[in-house]
Amino acid sequence: MGCASSRQFGARAAGHVEPEVLASDTSFTVNEVEALYELYKRMSFSIIKDGLIHKEEFQLALFRNSKKANLFADRVFDLFDLKRTGVIDFEEFVRSLSVFHPKAPTSEKTAFAFKLYDLRGTGYIEKEELRELVLALLDESDLCLSDSTVEAIVDNTFSQADSNGDGKIDPEEWEEFVKKNPAALRNMSLPYLQDITMAFPSFITRSEAKD
């Protein structure tokens, strides 16, 4: 059953890893990988049209605005760019998005969120980084809080997460923290990925028609 769709997919996504391989390595099924290709294709041909996702294409897809700078989008783009090439290819797109699948292991979500918030890649989430994240969030939401309120929120969070009190959150402390506060991982699960073949049915419809 998957032969026709795989051949068709291979021709359309030359150079990419076979959907069966991506499906076996991730939380997606083969059909879901193929549906994701619809989304990928739309994104990767939106501005530069070279079949790779550039940062402005990523921003355009997220915000409908290719120029909109956002700390979260920047961080996610850099983490999706597993091969450090400055662009996201289909394999990177699927492997990285898989972490956001509602059924992906919590350990993967926990590790990804840690890297996301470890803005300087030091191996710790530092107070200054958390402050930066909160300020970015306020800026994004057009909210205004006093410096002392921001400080209190950051201090309160650190008092919960930094159990050894050394002023930074290490991966073990982060793991403990998200176990006690699972809502901190809410943005690491995208319900859309549960029904991706419904959201992007056109490829599946075509490939099943061929089958």
Binding site: L39, M43, A61, L62, F63, R64, N70, F72, V76, F100, Y117, L130, L133, V134, A136, L137, E140, S141, T149, A152, I153, V154, N156, T157, Q160, A161, F177, V178, N181, A183, A184, L185, R186, N187, M188, L190, Y192, L193, A199
Partner: peptide, 25 residues
Amino acid sequence: TNLNAFEIISFSSGFDLSGLFIEKE
């Protein structure tokens, strides 16, 4: 000030990838 910064971040639309899946005109 009892707010937990990571939970606030996690619930913010600016820190969410849902936009990728919303149909654009």
